[in-house]
Measured scan of single mutants.
Amino acid sequence: LVRYRTISKIPQITLNFVDLKGDPFLASPTSDREIIAPKIKERTHNVTEKVTQVLSLGADVLPEYKLQAPRIHRWTILHYSPFKAVWDWLILLLVIYTAVFTPYSAAFLLKETEEGPPATECGYACQPLAVVDLIVDIMFIVDILINFRTTYVNANEEVVSHPGRIAVHYFKGWFLIDMVAAIPFDLLIFGSGSEELIGLLKTARLLRLVRVARKLDRYSEYGAAVLFLLMCTFALIAHWLACIWYAIGNMEQPHMDSRIGWLHNLGDQIGKPYNSSGLGGPSIKDKYVTALYFTFSSLTSVGFGNVSPNTNSEKIFSICVMLIGSLMYASIFGNVSAIIQRLYSGTARYHTQMLRVREFIRFHQIPNPLRQRLEEYFQHAWSYTNGIDMNAVLKGFPECLQADICLHLNRSLLQHCKPFRGATKGCLRALAMKFKTTHAPPGDTLVHAGDLLTALYFISRGSIEILRGDVVVAILGKNDIFGEPLNLYARPGKSNGDVRALTYCDLHKIHR
């Protein structure tokens, strides 16, 4: 019993810090008490220290592992850092350059016999395009090294910054494609005289377009951006097909006994025919423009016929181009109408809503002055909100995010209106959640004399007048207030005048 009563005193000691020596009952000389009392004092002292730490809000209350900052290894790049964003855009520009100039170089340097010394005699450094290609190869190699040090988000939505895990993730992902696209074939085969082989191998750079397509997928929600990307894709495919079309004609031209190829026909049409040795002929500019003209006309199913396939190889390629053109029509131009419709969806919704308003007016036989006010209010409210119901949009977000959005939407009023000066951010967040926005066209009466005042109004834009009878008592403008002081009276009061809008007004109100 003594032991039980001794232990039962522990909660009292913990909360009230009572010393055991003052209790005459606990001072009985028993061996059990002498053993338990020192333990009680020690526990009391420890609990006292913990309570003191909690009340003082000291940093040592938290466990040590929670006080440590997340460790980022040296030379690790955050995937959302500004440097990584700028670097990704730079790589994107280099990939676009590669997609345009690599097929052009591979096709127009394929057994090209233009006048001038061969590239091997001039030297590697004197070729501007080769120098640019070398810079692109170096940048792609540097990009691989950067990807080995860039964080990523795993399946659990955690940012991984450990170098080993980053390397394994990159090896399992895009490393092989990036490595093949970054191989400097110019340096590996330079001086061997195989410019045709170098041009063909350099087309491996186009593998990076797969990554670019995935990154550009984030802009699919913007109709104008999608339309622009589709047109660029169409032009890029036409450019690639033009390079292939020229390569076919250029390879067949020296081996044909009869002059029936499209390059021969082009030379005869523009007065620059090929001679018996295969030299001469149109310039590279004429060849490229004509090839691009043929691919565009074939892809769009126009086909004027002034550039036509004559050999079997050219006919087979033309059939493939027609098939590609039909697929592009289905996948690209078939979506253009939907994209344009999405661009004008706001206008369509406006006309639909206006039609419903006019049908309501016609069905209920609203008189002319009231009908005009109804239409003007709808037009003004639509121009202010673009038909978007803010309350319906915010309803799907958590309250903390709703408060931040409301604070942002009402920031101008909260910053410049005098009653809100000096208020804490928590108070402003709470008030912003209570605001209701209303609009009024010129001549609209917001409050009639004798109406119950259940709200306090803040003028965000425009001006109003307060009338008693036919006498203008006051004219209020931006950041002015009218209405009933909230919670100042037990019952809502009545208006002693009319409140009429002089201009288009936007008002925020808080109800009782």
Results as ranks from 00 to 15, higher is better:
435 F>C: 05
335 N>L: 04
124 Y>A: 05
224 A>I: 11
355 L>K: 08
368 N>T: 10
433 M>W: 04
90 L>P: 01
130 A>I: 05
155 A>E: 14
373 R>H: 06
268 D>T: 11
221 E>H: 09
377 Y>S: 13
446 L>T: 01
383 S>N: 10
443 G>R: 03
243 C>W: 01
435 F>K: 02
223 G>A: 08
310 N>R: 01
234 F>G: 01
78 L>G: 04
134 L>V: 07
404 D>M: 02
162 H>N: 04
214 R>G: 08
308 S>Y: 04
327 L>R: 02
80 Y>S: 08
71 R>E: 13
402 Q>L: 03
207 L>Q: 01
172 K>Q: 11
321 V>R: 01
182 A>I: 06
401 L>H: 03
240 W>L: 01
67 L>V: 05
297 S>A: 03
364 H>R: 03
346 G>P: 12
183 I>D: 01
77 I>L: 05
410 N>I: 04
226 V>P: 06
336 V>A: 01
196 E>T: 13
323 L>V: 10
228 F>H: 01
123 G>E: 01
102 T>Q: 01
128 P>E: 03
201 L>M: 01
126 C>F: 01
165 R>F: 09
185 F>G: 06
433 M>Q: 07
162 H>P: 01
157 E>Y: 04
91 I>G: 01
163 P>Q: 04
94 L>S: 13
159 V>C: 06
438 T>D: 08
75 W>S: 04
145 L>T: 04
235 A>H: 01
218 R>H: 05
289 V>K: 01
423 A>S: 03
264 H>E: 03
193 G>R: 13
130 A>E: 07
69 A>S: 07
438 T>N: 09
88 D>R: 01
187 L>C: 08
364 H>V: 02
138 I>V: 07
385 T>L: 03
94 L>W: 04
225 A>S: 06
195 E>A: 15
369 P>Q: 07
246 Y>S: 01
308 S>N: 05
154 N>D: 12
326 S>D: 01
97 Y>G: 01
282 P>T: 01
241 L>F: 05
346 G>F: 03
113 T>D: 05
328 M>L: 14
350 Y>H: 04
185 F>M: 10
357 V>I: 08
432 A>K: 01
266 L>K: 04
373 R>K: 13
